[in-house]
């Protein structure tokens, strides 16, 4: 018999994210997605150079100013959403898809297979992400596809570990024992109890993972390992603008802010959904 004291400290309301940030995050994310789908709705040609208006400060004509070739930074940021976000999404799809397969394989099959796989995940997950991606790029060469696969492989172990851990928890859950009492076969247990309960939280985790993928993608592009100029990728824009930082901060700082705003929005919404999800299941 346990008679627990209700836990009534500050933690309860601290963990609940306030509403306005969630609304703001949704708006930002909506804008970003629109920019991916239909950039010309907001912005003109990102490659149109104008040698007469080079490195101009933000103004009514050029909201985010112009860069060293006189290109409008705002137009480039809007069009950059497609590059940066689709790299992140593609990499996350690879990571989550393969992570689910390998995680389930480890969690559901023989113990020896689990041992080998999970040791592999552990070692890889602990290894610096950027270094893993760099190793892959060194072998496969630079380029957008290579960047996507590199980030996918580097973030895969994390997802695989989550899926495996969750699988083990669910497999041993008392409600699975009870399903045994109704003569459920192994396949039936996996299909009716294990898979739904393991995969339920995955979309939310993928959302938070997407934020991380976008961040790494921007970092590697900044290093010149992603889409090559003149592609308006956010990280690459920063890298180009870095040389003119002393006279034109906007050409590098504002594309960077686009990355930050997107990642924060993904994280805020992801955590919010995660909290709601956990609240519903505990």
């Amino acid at each position: 018999m346990t008679v627990a004291m209700p836990r009534l400290t500050a933690r309860r309301f601290a963990l609940r994210p306030p509403r306005p940030p969630i609304a703001a995050a949704t708006v930002v994310l909506g804008l970003a997605l629109t920019a991916v789908a239909w950039p010309s709705l907001f912005a003109a040609d990102p490659l149109a150079a104008d040698p007469l208006h080079v490195l101009e400060a933000p103004s009514a004509a050029h909201w985010f100013g112009t860069d060293q070739l006189g290109r409008d930074v705002f137009d480039r940021v809007v069009h950059g959403a497609r590059h940066s976000l689709s790299i992140g999404v593609a990499a996350t799809v690879i990571a989550v898809g393969a992570g689910i397969l390998l995680g389930l394989l480890a969690g559901l099959t023989h113990r020896a297979a689990d041992e080998v796989l999970s040791r592999g995940f552990d070692a890889l997950a602990a290894f610096p992400l950027v270094l893993l991606a760099l190793l892959f790029i060194a072998i496969a060469g630079t380029g957008t596809v290579s960047l996507i696969v590199a980030i996918g492989i580097a973030t895969l172990p994390h997802h695989a570990r989550v899926v495996r851990a969750q699988t083990l928890v669910v497999r041993q859950a008392p409600y699975v024992t009870h399903a045994v009492a109704f003569g459920a076969s192994r396949t039936r247990l996996v299909l009716r109890h294990v898979l739904p309960n393991v995969l339920g939280p995955i979309p939310v985790l993928a959302m938070i993972g997407l934020g991380e993928a976008v961040l790494i993608a921007a970092g590697l592009s900044f290093l010149g390992l992603g889409p090559q100029p003149p592609s308006p990728e956010w990280g690459a824009m920063l890298s180009e603008g870095r040389g003119y930082l002393h006279i034109a901060w906007w050409a590098s700082v504002l594309p960077g802010c686009a990355v930050t705003a997107t990642v924060i929005s993904l994280t805020v919404i992801g955590r919010h959904l995660q909290n709601r999800f956990e609240g519903r299941h505990q």
Partner: peptide, 22 residues
């Protein structure tokens, strides 16, 4: 913390550079 964690490190660097160095 949320902003720091979500900001690419090179952006932090560039902002610090432009403020404190330039």
């Amino acid at each position: 913390e949320l902003v720091l964690v979500s900001t690419p490190p090179f952006l932090i660097g560039i902002v610090l550079l432009s403020v404190f160095s330039f």
